[in-house]
Nucleic acid binder design. Structure first.
Lengths: 225, 225
DNA sequence: TCCTAGCCGTGGTCCGGCTCACAACCGCGA
DNA sequence: TCGCGGTTGTGAGCCGGACCACGGCTAGGA
């Protein structure tokens, strides 16, 4: 397993060497291929996962079958912690968007760590707080912004986390279909497609399959606010 | 200050007597009258508050002045913890919906408590996890449900927390204007009013100023899903 | 006691975005 | 090489809900 990624994960970045290696030892490894599901909404389970490689989507589906994505998680990010501290079934389905691997930690192991090491508790608290802040922002966006605005915001967020800057712009290999992008911003595939086409026609970005090249960050950011 | 309420607050319910009284001692008391503001979105500040009496609304406003309410908090509930663990400005404005009082704890005091007492850390983690779960539910509702559905959900939640059962139904003194209720569900005042009027005309509830009496919980719950 | 300021109820109009429908495209396996 | 399933592009129509414009109601202050 890739211990470097774990070491740099926000959750553990405050640990000293000895603690980090010990923690690495108590974690198990899991691998998935694109499209495979790690667990389903409603499943029971008490493991916490950290992405070491690839990307996953956290999604939930409504009674009539429509889907909504809560987040895309990449290397270093943690998920599955809700069922740990607020016992109950898994609140989302986790699916690999690319081939991916994870380190996992069981409830009991984590609690052992918590009691001894206040830094781990603080790491978890700050992770959860930051997630809560983001979730609140998403709520505000759904209420205040229109679909193009939300699409712009989502692209900027993906660019921030997965983008690589080149001469012709920021290449963002988000690995999402437009359908998935639509589920992420809470809109229909068609509307998202039209928003993207509009951005492209203005020269703000270039569309490529499962990725975009952002050519005018400035304008796109302005559209997002 | 009302130590009983603090003692029963979810956050501290797992503490033993000695710890609880000690904690009570290190908390300060604040009081507000209806309409007064405790702090504004964007302010700096590192205090965590627990409501001991009354209700507050946590709200944010968009650049063009529209408002949105994240939550209504009543006795025993905690807020303001985001700025503690994910340092940054306050993410919401807190306003008293009724006369209210709070116990508060500063960053430094809380950290001292955290290091010594793993139970407090667990209490905080489970509070944050539960808040995150709720916030995710709100996102799902905004994406999947229509306005009447969201209004029904909000009423049921308020009934759950502030309702008193009587012979003629569940009396819910939510203390919110329809405008505030609308901001809570992310809709316009007019649309919310029409939804309420519709529910009333079906005999599911009776409207009263700043409160409702729910007469048919069953049907209302069915409309909410 | 009246006057004013918030609230609450209810119509009309308009528009963003969803749904439906279809065409073009791209990579992949038989 | 030829389908073929999964994607992407785009137009037409419709509808939920925002916005606007009132009128009535109630409570609190001069």
């Amino acid at each position: 397993m890739d211990n470097d990624v774990l070491r740099q994960a926000p959750l553990f970045s405050s640990l000293d060497d000895e603690a980090a290696t010990a923690l690495g030892g108590s974690m198990a490894e899991t691998k998935l291929r694109r499209g495979e599901v790690l667990f389903h909404e409603g499943d029971s389970g008490d493991k916490l996962y950290i992405v070491t490689e690839g990307k996953v989507k956290l999604g939930r589906s409504s009674s009539d079958g429509r889907e909504n994505l809560l987040a895309i998680m990449g290397p270093g990010q943690m998920f599955g912690e809700l069922s740990l501290f607020d016992p109950g079934p898994r609140s989302a389905t986790v699916t690999a968007v690319t081939d991916a691997s994870f380190g996992s930690l069981s409830h009991d192991d984590l609690l052992r760590w918590l009691d001894g090491r206040p830094q781990v508790a603080r790491g978890l608290l700050s992770q959860l707080a930051s997630r809560l802040r983001k979730s609140n922002d998403v709520v505000a966006d759904l209420v205040f912004s229109d679909v193009p605005g939300r699409v712009a915001k989502a692209l900027l967020d993906l660019a921030d986390r997965f983008g690589r800057t080149a001469d012709d712009g920021v290449h963002v290999h988000h690995d999402l279909t437009q359908e998935e992008l639509a589920q992420l911003v809470g809109a229909s595939r068609e509307t998202v497609n039209k928003a993207l086409a509009d951005f492209a026609s203005r020269g703000w970005l270039r569309l490529e399959p499962r990725s975009v090249v952002i050519m005018d960050l400035e304008r796109l950011s302005r559209r997002a606010r």
